[in-house]
Write a protein that binds this DNA or RNA. Structure first.
Length: 270
DNA sequence: ATGTCACCGTACCGGTGA
């Protein structure tokens, strides 16, 4: 089973690209972020015609998250985090799909730092850490997927020294991500490619994609019950080069039906 | 600051967020 995450940067403006990618790669479950559309403008008919059932949590202009599935109806378990610091921003949706609990999120960007947006990012992250602790305690197979707006380590940034003061790479934010992983989550991309340079985002500015001036900010985290089934993980990098592309590329994991990997040892691996 | 892109309002561009 293939589970993907894709920050589409506008689900209606991106619809041709999204449908082409679905057609070419047929992921089973997809978490979408940055719909930038209210609920009534989610392109449900086109997505259904592509073979997917969907649930979505939209918002006018900004944010917005969705879960798509072609392997059974997503049964929604929650929208918004418990203790969400601002429930007008649509950033979290969660559903049981085909035996896996799937959480899709769009973590606040947080720039400029310092400032109220950065404070909101840290508060939102703490709500996520608290909820993730409850999820991991259930021993369920869980994947938390989405745009975390965090580069976890130096290896995940093309020029780390230039990003130290940015809200996507600030020490407090990386520390929150590390605390999340320390609960027992596996960063699937990094687990499958321990020392590779992997990016999931390239800015529209300054020819970033052609220069491979990228960031790894889209992540799929696997609960201990799910991590042994991780068989493959990668980025559909070429999609970023398509006409009218998002500034993010889709990221995906492949889960086997039975364990294929040793269980993860104690301690964060990022 | 630069640069690019998508959204909205009331709109044929400027403001905002990323």
């Amino acid at each position: 089973m293939r589970i993907a995450t894709y920050n589409v940067n506008g689900v209606n403006g991106r619809l041709p690209v999204l449908l082409r990618w679905l057609e070419e790669t047929s992921p089973d479950i997809i978490c979408l972020q940055e719909l930038k559309a209210p609920d009534e403008r989610f392109p449900a008919a086109a997505i259904e015609a592509a073979g997917y059932e969907a649930i979505w949590h939209g918002q006018k202009s900004w944010n917005g998250v969705a879960i798509l599935s072609r392997v059974g109806t997503p049964v929604e378990t929650r929208r918004g985090l418990p203790d969400d610091p601002d429930n007008t921003q649509s950033r979290y949706i969660e559903a049981a799909v085909n035996g896996v609990l799937v959480a899709g999120l769009y973590l606040p960007n947080g720039n400029p730092r310092p400032g109220p947006k950065f404070d909101y990012k840290l508060r939102w992250f703490e709500s996520l850490v608290a909820h993730a602790a409850e999820l991991v305690a259930t021993d369920m197979p869980v994947v938390i997927a989405g745009d975390f707006n965090v580069m976890p380590t130096d290896r995940d940034v093309y020029r780390p020294e230039r990003w130290l003061d940015d809200a996507l790479f600030a020490p407090e934010v990386r520390e929150a991500y590390a605390r999340l992983l320390a609960q027992g989550w596996t960063d699937a991309l990094r687990a499958m490619h321990p020392s590779e340079t992997i990016y999931t985002f390239w800015d529209y500015l300054r020819n970033a994609y052609a220069r491979n001036a990228g960031l790894r900010i889209d992540h799929l985290l696997l609960s201990p019950a799910l991590a042994p089934r991780l068989a493959a993980a990668n980025v559909d990098r070429d999609v970023r080069g398509w006409e009218k592309s998002s500034d993010h590329a889709p990221v995906w994991i492949e889960l086997a039906n039975k364990p294929v990997r040793a269980s993860r040892r104690k301690g964060p691996k990022i």
